[in-house]
Amino acid sequence: MNKRSPWQILQPYVQVFDGPLMLIVCLILALGTVTLYSAGIDFPGRVEDHVRNIMISFLVMWIAAMIPPQTLMRFAVPLYILGISLLIGVAMFGLIRNGARRWINVGMIIQPSEIMKIAMPMMLAWFFQKREGMTRWREFLVAGLLLVVPVGLIMRQPDLGTSLLVMAAGFYVIFFAGLSWKVIVAAVTVMLASLPVVWSMMHDYQRGRVLTLIDPTTDPLGKGFHIIQSTIAIGSGGITGKGWLNGTQAHLEFIPERTTDFIFAVFSEEFGLIGNGILLVLYLLLIGRSMLIAANAPTLFSRLLAGAITMIFFTYAFVNMGMVSGILPVVGVPLPFVSYGGTAFVTLGLGVGILMSIQRHRKLMQS
């Protein structure tokens, strides 16, 4: 009896990963870890925690890649119901921190809104899969209601950033399912017309973020401080950057939240326009590879889910870079695979794992 080599033993477990997608994610993670080391040099244990989060996300990614898309589809409804139930629980007896009620203690403290970032597109992809070939305006109306409920509960917490991400994730599924451009234009028109009403319903801190975006110099030491300092850091990086560990805005503590939401400012200051270009190319490759997986997916459920996850990656990166650069309001969205944070890493790892599952099982069906 021939003895199997260590590679032969590990091969079935390693092959669940999609090579090109894994390479792109690892390159982004490498840049993120280098940047976090510099940004978090004054935070003992931050890098170690970051590496731990990466390992947990890889574990989640591996588990998700092992699960067939058909099994994922069976989890869609229970996961959505669980997420809604937890959001209702947060509204009733959630924990309050910094004026926001976003967490709940279920033996451990969790943020249920994070569950909806994946549960929402899974639910809508399941919904349209069950109605494949008979999509009418009624189906889109029901899908809109399924989306509005969790978004409304999350906005009530209040958590504008997460509610926008969940709304975007659900909208992408509805759009890919065949939503008419006429409906989109009409919806945008209604939204623009209702802006005065939305403005009156916004919290004071949310209004402050919008006003600060328009002119951050009106409160340079208060609400405008974040944007002013981050744009200074980005501009001072120039073409080649100041060099790793040499960012003055970061190390003199002018950039707030420099290991999380504003880590892109640290990266820009130290690696400059060239570094930004490399990071943007990596994100484009990530989106391109993910979209290719979505386009080749064998079922409507997997195509819609993969397409939505791909656009979630785009939304994370676009919104984060936009808010740090001062072209979008500050809404607390991390830079994918770069910003420090455990929950975001788990969500992103799960998303990549689902994409790998779709790609892997497509190949198995063809072989």
Rank of each mutant, 00 (worst) to 15 (best):
I9R: 15
L141P: 04
L279R: 07
F264A: 11
V25Y: 10
L328D: 00
L164V: 07
G45S: 09
I56Q: 08
P69Y: 14
M201P: 00
Q111T: 05
G288H: 02
L213F: 03
K117V: 03
F254T: 00
G238M: 04
G152V: 05
F58I: 12
L21G: 02
L95F: 04
F318N: 01
I312V: 11
H50T: 07
I184H: 11
L195H: 13
T260R: 08
M66N: 11
E269G: 12
V266M: 09
G288P: 06
M120K: 12
E269W: 02
W62S: 12
G272I: 01
M167W: 06
L305P: 02
T231C: 06
R52M: 03
Y172M: 11
G241F: 03
E48F: 10
I56R: 15
T248G: 02
M22Y: 13
A186D: 04
A297C: 08
A168Y: 10
T231S: 04
D18R: 07
G224H: 07
I228W: 04
G45H: 10
G224S: 12
I109N: 14
R101G: 00
V77G: 02
I154V: 15
T260L: 05
S357Q: 06
M108I: 07
G224C: 11
Q206F: 09
L72M: 10
L355N: 07
W62I: 06
L192Q: 08
L221V: 00
I110G: 14
Y172C: 14
P12M: 03
L124M: 04
A294Y: 09
P68M: 07
M73F: 04
L165R: 14
P298R: 15
T248Q: 11
A65C: 06
S357W: 01
S302I: 01
M365D: 10
P112H: 12
G247E: 05
A308Q: 10
I67L: 11
M22R: 03
F58E: 04
L146K: 13
L286S: 05
D204S: 15
G208W: 09
G353Q: 11
K363C: 08
M92H: 12
P78N: 06
W62C: 13
A233H: 06
L282P: 09
S357M: 01
L21I: 04
W103Y: 14
W244R: 06
L300Q: 14
S325Y: 12
G99A: 08
T217I: 00
M66G: 12
V142E: 09
V25L: 12
F127R: 14
S57I: 02
I184Y: 05
K242P: 00
I67H: 13
S339Q: 08
T162I: 09
S5M: 08
F314G: 11
W244T: 02
T347E: 07
L23A: 14
A177E: 08
P298G: 05
L348Y: 03
F267S: 01
L300Y: 04
D159F: 08
V166W: 08
G224V: 03
L213T: 04
M191H: 03
V333G: 09
L86R: 07
A143H: 11
